[in-house]
């Protein structure tokens, strides 16, 4: 499996990471290097095996469906790069 420049651009777009042409070539080489290296997993026979989901040490817990947190609007907003009153701001999304 080898990634072409268009695929690298598509991945960057999916990841919402801006890249420019100068990044493209080195990223393509590095990602292909890593993907080529992980190809070694093709040697492993996993037929009929199940994927590991969690380490099996903890069972999921349930609790009463009640509010346990909240009323901390100022704390929640305290690190917003651009808050106006009790709101986060975003660029205009509707023309």
């Amino acid at each position: 499996m080898s990634l072409d420049p268009a695929t690298v651009r598509r991945i960057a777009r999916l990841a919402r990471i801006g890249i420019d042409e100068s990044d493209l070539q080195s990223l393509q080489g590095e990602l292909n290097g890593i993907l080529g290296w992980v190809e070694q997993l093709n040697e492993v026979d996993v037929e009929g095996g199940s994927p590991m989901v969690g380490t099996g040490h903890a069972a999921l817990r349930t609790r009463e469906d009640v509010v346990t947190d909240g009323n901390c609007r100022e704390a929640v907003l305290s690190n917003a790069p651009d808050a106006v009153g009790p709101f986060y701001t975003v660029p205009k999304v509707v023309e």
Binding site: G18, N79, P81
Partner: peptide
């Protein structure tokens, strides 16, 4: 949006991409 640094962009996606770049 909610915390961390922001780099402005014309659209929401442009802001995400510039911020994360």
């Amino acid at each position: 949006l909610r915390f961390g640094e922001r780099v402005e962009g014309q659209t929401l996606d442009a802001m995400y991409e510039a911020t994360r770049r």
